[in-house]
Design a protein around this nucleic acid. Structure first.
Length: 829
RNA sequence: GCGGGUGUGGCGAAACGGCAAACGCUGUGGUCUUAAACACCACUCUGGGAGUACCAGUUACGGGUUCGAAUCCCGUCACCCGCACCA
């Protein structure tokens, strides 16, 4: 050994990751190490990461999203839980279809190939996946349950058809849900400008669950910003619905959050699309109104809702009048595009003194402004001179019997009066709209509905499911559903009368696939329902869900909605699907930009695994910083993790040659034992709290401490052996391969991943002799080594003996002493 | 405009209101080597100082609370994210 050259040393003694990792990967597969047993009596733990889109190749971002939760799941397993940590693929959707169109191959083989490739890469990572539970949403055994749930929702009235203006993406040639439209008119998928079309489409009544979706956010252990985003999206407003009589005899309903300002309503505004516009418009005004309505239709929502400083209010007078329900005044009715048909009732009472938009409109068209709230402090407002609306607190004025009340009192009082008169009632509205779920695309779940000329719309009978997606369809986008041109699919018989009928040719939004998929993992082969309620009861709700922040609204809101619907169907008992949610940050390219396949800024893990090993890559990703933060990829730091693994491996190698029957000075032994207990405590707490970066630092410090001592007498003691074994156990979740190898080198039974997580003794996590800081007047002057439980008097006496302290504190009696045992002594003179 | 977050060495970062910069990277010097790679050791916030002695300063900026502030409070600036004519 002493004769060996440096080259030999490198070959013989250095840890070789690739062959070792290959060896254990094979062994884990042979022994089914990651098979999950439903009947395991230990308490369950369901860890889930959002199933990925099968785009082909994993980049380091996928690793970051999966390997870190994988380590957490391994940790839970060692802690004695029966852990379910499954994997599947979100396999339907536009990218497959678009790639297929581009390369002129079918989406199915493209998807299957990508999934196979990704499966291999997850195995390379050493992921703790039970592949027997894998699911893929393009599989008829999966999507038949989409169809099953859909039919149940039709029966329950939750799924329904509606004609109306919907978002249309000209690039993707399909309609979109509101949630899929960004910045007013941008397609979430492809970034194209989208616009509204009138189409009859399928919807899910998510609005029925708006209140529950909102209130139950409070009890979830989710990042606050995700909860805030969902609250904003649901957009609850409390106020009142008021009925204004029109001179045509119709009733015009409006929603307002400020019913207390009704005396200040000096005009009304309808959305241009409002159904009463035509009836209300007088003959003199008809031409102007019709021109305005027509123009508004062509304006994109972004223009209508834009808050650019230059924006000016536009609108026209209809010629009609309404009666104010409290003042009985006659007020003009206008139309303007700042009022949206899709919110509230599509009409407002305009109170220019209290609402900035109404104020601007009134100034622009010289409409009257009447003050109804006078601020308590500052100059009284004057409607003739005020430059902006006042929406703050104050005293009600110009409002008849309500004068003198404060706003919070006036609101219920006025609602009560309106209710008495049958002219209004308290109401809550939401910004959330129903979920549009039909898509005019090919690669998705066929909607199981049949249209018969004599019997009308008929659900496909449950026993006829699945309605298979035909593979030989022409799927190039034409703006019509591709399936419409597939005669064999389209033409069918009516399940009721047996006569000729047509199938629904739209497919379901692929967000439906991901709205319940985790239930399927609990009973993957089940063929009587989407999942076995018994198994779902055992495993769900998910204890820890992880994924990207980009799903804060879409997927997470839909998944919550589905859980509540499935609960109402009696399939599950829980109200919420995911008890704890953690979002990983995004891994950017080394330059700090988004990793992109097309720009070549993606970092491939495969080469890194080949060079440094999967364990080193995993550690490196963990060590980059807080997991929720993400950040730019750094290709240099990974060597540090490789060095750390090598040092740990070296310690185990040397330990394998020893007998551990030696003795060592008590102080050295104590240091080893305390370092071990401290590290167990630190690693345990850090993993539990998702602080993987500091967890890795803790492991490194422990290895460095042991490395420093490995040639001392303490390295031949049973305590040393215990420290080495503990090190391997602590490394097992985050470096599964090398830990397995080291465990074997120590002569321990397979597998390290089936061992119990080490326990620590709280008393041994603290040193009994500590260095404390001594301050004089808050400034650090010296450091003293004291017993951890030293009394204040002892500490002070020791400080008195210090020259440096003497120099600054003198002999005078201190004014005050602050002593924090184990930390510091502050002497105030 | 509203809401949320962030700001610490050359870089990624750490720090229950208690010794700022743990841990890693980079860099510099050294040991080993014919040479290199690997590995190992030392140093690596700023200024003063011959110095690994010692002194002073330092957590975007300005105040405050406190014996003591990166941490708590107020204000300013910068950047990031979400919402936004939602009645």
């Amino acid at each position: 050994m002493s004769e060996s050259t440096a080259t030999e040393r490198q070959q013989v003694e250095r840890y070789q990751a690739p062959p070792t990792e290959a060896k254990w990967r094979a062994r884990w597969q042979e022994t089914n190490l990651y098979r999950v047993d439903d009947d395991d009596p230990r308490p369950k733990w369901f860890s889930l990461t959002m199933y990925p889109y099968p785009s082909g190749i994993l980049h380091v971002g996928h690793w970051y999203a999966f390997a870190v939760p994988d380590s957490f799941a391994r940790f839970k397993r060692m802690q004695g839980f029966n852990v379910l940590f499954p994997m599947g693929f979100d396999a339907f959707g536009l990218p497959a279809e678009n790639a297929a169109i581009k390369n002129n191959i079918h989406p199915a083989p493209w998807t299957i190939e990508n999934i196979a490739q990704m499966r291999t890469q997850y195995d390379l990572m050493g992921a703790m996946i039970d592949w027997s539970r894998e699911l893929a949403s393009y599989d008829p055994d999966y999507y038949r349950w989409n169809q099953w749930i859909f039919l149940k929702m039709v029966e329950a009235g939750i799924a329904y058809r509606k004609d109306g203006a919907v978002w249309w993406c000209p690039q993707d040639q399909t309609v979109l849900a509101n949630e899929q439209v960004l910045d007013g008119n941008i397609c979430e998928r492809c970034g194209s400008e989208v616009y509204k079309r009138d189409l009859e489409q399928w919807y899910f009544k998510i609005t029925d669950y708006a209140e529950e979706l909102l209130t139950e956010l409070d009890g979830l252990d989710w990042p606050e910003r995700v909860k805030t985003m969902q609250r904003n999206w649901i957009g609850r407003s409390t106020g009142a619905r008021l009925a204004f009589q029109l001179e045509t005899g119709d009733t015009l309903e409006v929603f307002t959050t400020r019913p207390d300002t009704v005396y200040g309503a000096t005009f009304m505004v309808l959305a241009p699309e409002h159904p009463l516009v035509a009836k209300l418009t007088t003959d003199e005004q008809r031409e102007t109104v019709e021109a305005y309505v027509k123009a508004a239709r062509y304006k994109s929502e972004i223009e209508r809702l834009s808050t650019d400083e230059e924006r000016t209010k536009t609108g026209v007078f209809t010629g009609g009048y309404a009666i104010n329900p409290l003042t009985d005044e006659r007020i003009p009715v206008w139309i303007a595009d700042y009022v949206l048909m899709t919110y509230g009732t599509g009409a407002i009472m305009a109170v220019p003194s209290g609402d900035q938009r109404d104020f601007e409109f009134a100034r622009a068209f010289d409409l009257p402004i009447r003050l109804t709230v006078q601020p308590i402090e500052g100059e009284p407002l004057d409607p003739d001179t005020m430059t902006e609306a006042y929406g703050g607190p104050g005293i009600v004025v110009n409002s008849g019997e309500f004068n003198g009340q404060r706003v919070p009192e006036a609101i219920p009082a006025m609602i009560a009066r309106l209710e008495e008169q049958g002219r209004g009632k308290a109401e809550v509205t939401y910004r959330l709209r129903d979920w549009l779920i039909s898509r005019q695309r090919y690669w998705g779940t066929p909607i199981p509905i049949i249209y018969c000329d004599s019997c009308g719309m008929q659900p496909v009978p449950y026993e006829d499911l699945p309605v298979l997606l035909p593979h030989d369809a022409e799927f190039k986008p034409t703006g019509q559903s591709p399936l419409i041109s597939h005669e064999a699919f389209l033409n069918t018989t009516c399940p009721k009368c047996g006569g000729p009928a047509r199938r629904e040719t739209d497919t379901l939004d692929t967000f439906m696939d991901s709205s319940w998929y985790w239930f399927r993992y609990t009973s993957p082969g089940y063929d009587k329902a989407p999942f076995d309620p018994e198994q779902a009861k055992k495993w769900t709700p998910v204890d820890l869900y992880s994924g990207g922040i980009e799903h804060a609204i879409l997927h997470l809101l839909y998944a919550r909605f589905f859980t509540k619907v499935l609960r109402d169907f009696g399939l599950v008992e829980q109200n919420e699907p995911f008890l704890r949610l953690r979002n990983q940050g995004m891994i950017l390219s080394e330059e700090g930009t988004k990793m992109s396949k097309s720009r070549g800024t993606q970092v491939s893990p495969d080469e890194l695994v080949h060079e440094y090993g999967a364990d080193a890559l995993r550690l490196h990703l963990m060590f980059l910083g807080p997991w929720e933060l993400g950040g730019p990829w750094n290709s240099r730091g990974i060597v540090g993790m490789e060095r750390f693994i090598r040092r740990a491996w070296q310690l185990v190698t040397e330990a394998g040659e020893k007998s551990f029957d030696g003795a060592a000075p008590a102080a050295d032994l104590d240091a080893v034992v305390r370092a071990m207990h401290k590290t167990i405590a630190r690693v345990t707490e850090d993993i539990a709290g998702f602080h993987f970066n500091t967890m890795v630092a803790g492991l490194i410090e422990f290895v460095n401490e042991l490395t420093k001592r490995k040639d001392g007498p303490e390295a031949n003691t049973p305590e040393w052996r215990a420290a080495i074994e503990t090190l391997v156990l602590l490394m097992a979740p985050s470096t599964p391969y090398v830990a397995e190898e080291m465990w074997e080198m120590l002569g321990k039974p397979y597998s390290v991943h089936q061992q119990s997580w080490p326990a620590y003794d709280e008393a041994l996590t603290k040193d009994d002799v500590v260095e404390i800081a001594v301050q004089v007047n808050g400034k650090l002057r010296d450091k003293l080594v004291l017993a951890a439980d030293a009394s204040e008097a002892e500490a002070l006496a020791a400080a008195r003996a210090s020259e440096k302290v003497q120099q600054f504190a003198g002999d005078a009696t201190p004014k005050r002493i602050i002593y924090v045992p184990g930390r510091l002594l502050n002497i105030i003179v």
